[in-house]
Design a protein around this nucleic acid. Structure first.
Lengths: 200, 200
DNA sequence: ACCTGAACACCGTTCAAGT
DNA sequence: ACCTGAACACCGTTCAAGT
């Protein structure tokens, strides 16, 4: 029993570290490992046992939200015309990136990270599905590589730390959509009962 | 005379620091201040006397090249059709960014830096002039804010550290140009004798 | 006036020592 | 097996002391 209680302690430590890190990184994306370990009430060694590198910790913190985004892509595609779904998803992604400051840089670096490869490829697939749906519906005449577009999104979001930057990132997103040859679906179609105004 | 020789020594120090930093930062964009000071044969304090912060040093190193880019915009506009000039300039900017790794991040942060404000606004103006010329010639149907576009350029160039990233940054640049509604000028016009193939 | 370089307050990461 | 926290090798920056 001592073994399993040890292990459950370790498990609890891991969860506590994640919870503390989630909060600390939201408050300050450059919060130090020392401060996170201290706030979690563990030694730095313990933190490193669970997350062998700073990036691994950040990954652990953001993975959940990113998985949510992948799921969101599907449900938006079910509920809206493809282009509207795609745009809403990008907006949601932007909001998430603004909360969790580090995510944009993370997605950039995560491209090559082993441990994040699966989650990353699921994101790329989500973008691919949305883009494909838009193409199929003739709402997008000039599709690009989904991974390219995801990377562009992540880059734009690096700007969204200030109010000005946020506005700029949205304008650049519009520019990118124009680059894709996006034609917003026939909003006058009342079939979906969308008022086209208030999103969410 | 001791005063002026002091000052000329200081001046020489400054130049030497810049020269060494230029090389060191090209080799490793994260080269430390300590190592640069040592390589320049001065104490850290001396380096800090001339460049009160790391960013100031990086700024000093890159300013010359950036000024060159501003001048280049004008000469390209003289020699080529506007859209061709614009595209060539972006390519040249990309090459410069690949040599001097730090420049993309710099342009992002320099937006708000007092000491860089003048150089930065000259860059924005260069982009504005090229965009305007394209518009005037009907080669660009959907112009964007020049500063937005410059920031997008700087972001894309953050990708260009690897061969794959470079290719991606070029695809994203194409995407952005499509977003601007870029129509490449009538290349069949032989008036300029361009073979449209090999650039440079 | 200008320079030096030890020193400071950090950082991410490691590892001997404990339980 | 898991944890602790001092210690290491850095970093950018400062500042008393020299000339």
């Amino acid at each position: 029993m001592s073994l399993s209680s040890r292990r459950s302690d370790a498990r609890a430590n891991r969860e506590r570290i994640l919870a503390v890190a989630r909060e600390a990184l939201a408050a300050d994306p450059e919060a130090s490992i020392h401060s996170i370990a201290k706030a979690a009430g563990v030694g730095q060694g313990t933190l490193y046992r669970h997350f062998p590198t700073r990036e691994a910790l950040v990954l652990g913190v953001y993975r959940e939200g990113i998985d949510d985004l992948v799921v969101l892509a599907s449900s938006l595609l079910d509920e809206h015309r493809p282009m509207r779904a795609f745009r809403l998803w990008c907006r949601r992604f932007g909001e998430y990136a603004r909360e969790k400051h580090g995510i944009a840089a993370l997605i950039r670096s995560a491209m090559s990270e082993r441990h994040f490869a699966e989650t990353y490829s699921m994101m790329v697939d989500a973008v691919r599905r949305m883009m494909q749906a838009c193409s199929d519906e003739g709402e997008l005449s000039d599709p690009a590589d989904p991974e390219d577009f995801l990377q562009a999104l992540a880059l734009f979001m690096q700007l969204a730390t200030t109010a000005d930057g946020l506005a700029r990132s949205e304008r650049l997103l519009d520019l990118a959509f124009r680059g894709l040859g996006a034609r917003d679906g026939p909003e006058q179609t009342t079939a979906y009962g969308s008022k086209a105004g208030a999103p969410e």
